[in-house]
Design a protein around this nucleic acid. Structure first.
Lengths: 187, 187
DNA sequence: GTCTATAGCTAGATAGAC
DNA sequence: GTCTATCTAGCTATAGAC
């Protein structure tokens, strides 16, 4: 908790970039060293448990970013639910670089990352679902429908990112975000 | 093409199991050797270009399996479109082991696999979309709607697999398949 | 066509100077 | 707190006997 305050966020974003694109096994210390402008020994000074601790710190950093920039605004009752959703979708669009960047959850879902980070990933996804459930309730949907829409929102984001990567076209991600907006707001 | 005929399909399924769960970088020759009951040198005898060629052979093998067991039945005009869809969904359910197994496209979408196999993955995903587009047309949907439903089918499968893995619950995958069936058949 | 043995290299991780 | 230098283990890949 307090530890992250000391760490430079540029450092963590450099690490995140590598883990997102290469996964846990694919990320190697030479590249992590280059993107952070720190030699390997310096990385080990900051992360005594090595690569595993670096990936965990990245997950925590991203969670904090999402809390602050997506979830908190999504629950801000001073703003209309409609406007909250639109803002959140813009942040989501930007955080995935328009669909060109992978999701850290997906990148770390392959072994051996899946065992190492399963719990953190599960909590992270659950938080996304909860945030969109609250949006649904704010729009006067039933609990059941709020849950259904929230799950489908996550599926649309994750699925469209897979297609965007596999077919090398960001239109799938862009259309998915539009579809999410329609599902919540068109009625 | 002819080469795959010689290769034992058990061998390729062993290789596939490792690549699906670990990705390209995470799959190492020691484990590939164990699951195939072949020593490393024997694997190199069969795949002179090494790990890259093994992953390519796996992609080809899976494509052939999908053609035969999912796409061909999905276009078989002797069977009603409704029944075709139901059969295809059962095959899809089984081929992902009820949601517990990863998709090979997703596993190979991280670097360095993404550059090595981008083309094959793109063609593979496009084939899935085409197959479901034809189903939509057989159900008398417009071309536009057929395309939209086909893309959403892929998104639902891929996205629900991510949630299934991340939240360690196959219900997301199961519900996604039910949702796909409803979308095509309920009207 | 399968094996044992090993080359050549790079990975993650550490020691110790500054 | 960062560095250079280095360790050991694991990696991909190959040589050559059978």
């Amino acid at each position: 908790m307090g530890k992250q305050k000391i760490l430079d966020s540029d450092l963590l974003e450099g690490l995140a970039k590598v883990f997102r694109s290469k996964g846990y096994d694919g990320a190697n210390l030479s590249e992590l060293s280059i993107v952070t402008n720190l030699k390997k020994a310096s990385l080990y000074h900051r992360f005594p448990d090595g690569k595993k601790e670096m990936a965990e710190a990245v997950l925590i950093h991203i969670e904090e970013w999402v809390d602050k920039n997506i979830f908190d605004p999504l629950e801000n009752k001073k703003v209309s639910p409609k406007k909250r959703l639109k803002n959140a979708l813009i942040e989501i669009y930007n955080s995935y670089n328009g669909g060109k960047d992978n999701c850290i959850f997906r990148a770390l879902s392959l072994e051996p990352g899946s065992e190492l980070f399963q719990e953190k990933i599960g909590i992270g996804i659950q938080k996304w679902i909860s945030a969109f459930e609250k949006l649904g309730l704010a729009l006067n949907f039933t609990e059941e429908k709020s849950h259904e829409y929230a799950v489908q929102t996550l599926i649309d984001i994750q699925g469209s990112l897979v297609l965007t990567k596999g077919l090398n076209s960001t239109k799938f991600f862009e259309n998915a975000l539009k579809g999410i907006e329609s599902r919540y707001l068109e009625r």
